[in-house]
Design a protein around this nucleic acid. Structure first.
Length: 280
DNA sequence: AGATTCGGCGT
DNA sequence: ACGCCGAATCT
């Protein structure tokens, strides 16, 4: 019989179990695979010891993350151990600060980290109903959960006032949004508009168009497209693109200068230490 | 078909 | 060295 170890997993919402299976043959004998699955009702009631058919096993962090969606922030969740590891916010191993190599590659955005707000207010009913015993009822599986969870209509407002800052808590200069971007909804500050757009870009790789329906202006509560930010539909002109290219060039320019300066400082530091080492 | 298991690619 | 996932194998 296979070597299995089942444990509760306190880092995840109640009902989630972790299972570790040791490989017992082949080249990879001795290694193990980790799965997560949801304990099914039958098991909780001790009526049946079979794994629930709806209790699908999740084999990787991306897969689990896809399922849980914004419900849980798996940003620092370690799949293998099943524990939250505060130290590894990004999956980065420690790399030298400002090491050019760490900036050179990558280019992928982490869509797993949830925004710093609760996106499902407790006043909304959660789908508690579970259909257990009627064979004609198919237990709903996967997917719809994360996308169809109720969200507050104007949740972007809660991001109002958030500012990015560097490690010394000095507030970084805020972005200027192009003219022509206008917000929709109860709050028309640039502040919220920026949050709305940034959030939209952060949470999905789908195109951001803004609110296409003109009716959303008059009665947002009815017409708001909740998969788009609280921003009026806009178009992007060649002019905008050129301006943006210019900004990027300038940003790269100053990054390059900063890196050069840092490299120089580092080099002189090193030679100084070398010299002192020789004296001693 | 669904569950289990190991290989092997990509990083 | 390891995470992730395809696919062969098992039930």
């Amino acid at each position: 019989m296979m070597e299995k170890k089942r444990t509760e997993c306190p880092a995840l919402p109640p009902g989630w179990r972790k299972e570790e299976v040791i490989r017992k043959s082949g080249l990879s004998a001795g290694k193990s695979d980790v799965y997560y699955y949801r304990q099914c009702m039958a098991q909780r009631n001790r009526q049946n010891s079979d794994p629930s058919p709806s209790g699908k096993k999740f084999r990787s962090k991306p897969q689990l993350s896809r399922y849980l969606g914004n419900t849980v922030d798996l940003g620092c969740f370690d799949f293998r151990t099943g524990k939250m590891m505060p130290g590894k916010l990004q999956k980065n191993k420690q790399r030298l600060r400002n090491d050019p190599l760490s900036l050179a590659k990558g280019g992928k955005v982490d869509l797993n980290t949830a925004l710093p707000i609760r996106q499902t207010a407790p006043i909304f009913k959660q789908p508690v109903t579970k259909v257990t015993s009627h064979p004609s009822n198919k237990v709903k599986t996967d997917l719809q959960r994360s996308s169809e969870q109720p969200r507050q209509l104007f949740w972007e407002r809660r991001l109002k006032g958030l500012r990015s800052s560097d490690i010394t808590e000095e507030v970084l200069q805020t972005l200027d949004l192009p003219k022509g971007l206008q917000s929709v909804g109860p709050d028309s500050s640039d502040d919220t508009l920026l949050s709305a757009i940034a959030s939209a870009l952060h949470m999905s790789s789908a195109p951001i168009t803004g609110q296409m329906s003109v009716a959303a202006e008059k009665s947002p509560v009815v017409w708001l497209n909740t998969s788009q930010p609280l921003c009026r539909a806009f178009n992007v002109t060649d002019q905008h693109i050129r301006e943006q290219e210019l900004k990027v060039h300038q940003a790269r320019r100053s990054l390059e200068e900063a890196l050069m300066a840092d490299g120089l400082a580092r080099a002189t530091e090193n030679t100084r230490e070398l010299l002192e080492g020789n004296k001693a």
